[in-house]
Design a protein around this nucleic acid. Sequence first.
RNA 1: GGUGAGGUUCCCGAGUGGCCAAAGGGAUCAGACUGUAAAUCUGACGCGCAAGCUUCGGUGGUUCGAAUCCACCCCUCACCA
Length: 430
Amino acid sequence: MTKRTLLEDLKARGLIAQTTSEEELAAHLEAGSVTLYCGFDPTADSLHLGHLVPLLMLKRFQDYGHRPIALVGGATGMIGDPSFKAQERQLNSAEVVQQWSDCLKRQISQFIEFGDDGGAILANNYDWTANVDVLSFLRDIGKHFSVNKMIAKESVRQRIEREGEGISFTEFTYQILQSYDFQKLNELYGCTLQIGGSDQWGNITGGIELVRRMNGKSVHGLTLPLITKADGTKFGKTEGGAVWLDPKKTSPYAFYQFWLQTPDADVYRFLKFFTFLDVDQIDEIEAQDRARDGRPEAQRILAEEVTRLVHDEEALQGARRITEALFSGDHSSLDESDYAQLQLDGLPSSQLPSNLNEVPLTTLLAEAGLAASGKQVKDALQRGAVLINDRECSMEQNMSAATLFAPESARFGRYFLVKLGKRKHHLFYL
RNA sequence: GGUGAGGUUCCCGAGUGGCCAAAGGGAUCAGACUGUAAAUCUGACGCGCAAGCUUCGGUGGUUCGAAUCCACCCCUCACCA
């Protein structure tokens, strides 16, 4: 069969929320290599799963011969995007934003091929925004914006209309800055397309209009759908908060586990959103899962694909090794070097303190991160949900940590695998 | 600057002198059932193994006793200037 065009593929994946005139955009993309951009504001020291779809989107374009620009919002990050945010945001200091910008830069470079000739471009809007003086800003840029239109945008209207909330001039100005980015990138690199989350539509159209007014060019916009879960809860969150792309913040093992736990109702959609597997291939996986009883394969495939994409093959294998060891139900097959490997692969682990007879089990396990508080450990203990080297513990043993973790019952003289609940594991060593 | 409405435990939101560690919902965690899924049911949900300790924007005060009353302050919002 003939290969789909980029837009056809994106559509088949459900990756398009809105576009400016679809025919014009299609024609534009067919006519040759297009330079496009997507912005990422530094709101933390790492990107998280919410950024993954746009990031992969840049790569999808690159795979089809287009040239992506990843824009780090060193300037816009200082202001804060009000779009569909219920509340005014806390401003971060310049140093922090700068530092975070650098973090994002490093991360983004891992995803897209950057290079001198025709390769992707990494830009920072701080470069052209920081030195614009107020008067120039107001006269040269501000003059092109109608406050009437700015207020009418859905993304800020809610804030303005909502009882008990408001919007500062600072945040209100955000859309002008983002529009200016598009104008600047059009001027500097001939960028003719901006992509972003569906919440960015207002900011993108603002930019399109500014480019037309200032540069006399007709440019395009495309937004991606908000990733939702079938049960209505927020995508990309776990007990510990956001799932980060930085392996130091979310280990590849935790990352792999996150995807493995994807509900059936979401998994095929997610395969389309988060992997580069062909749409037909994904439909095939779904058909096979349906035909078979029991557990679907899709989660495993999804977890493997995304972990490999965000981390690498080695990290994926590590995550798989841990998963295999912990969830196969049989720890006795692990040899001594396997335990050391589990630690290296990123299984949470910690050294047992020397004053074990003074420390309640609740405190010990809570501090290891197996639960948020001692109370929760208590609850788990009372329900028989705590296993130390496969042996169940009770609340009565709470003060007998020294006995439970006695050297003679350690595996290979030093390891204790502690399990709390069905899927939380921690390796203690002497 | 004026007037009005507010600031409650992760979020929403009740609570207007003792019965309040504070209703209800959401989120989260654990158990049962399963497939490390969903749905459902059960339990937990400020901290502490416990005795107990610390909360209701802040600081003082009234009271035997305050999230609740008073004073001042800080912050948010709306309308007006």
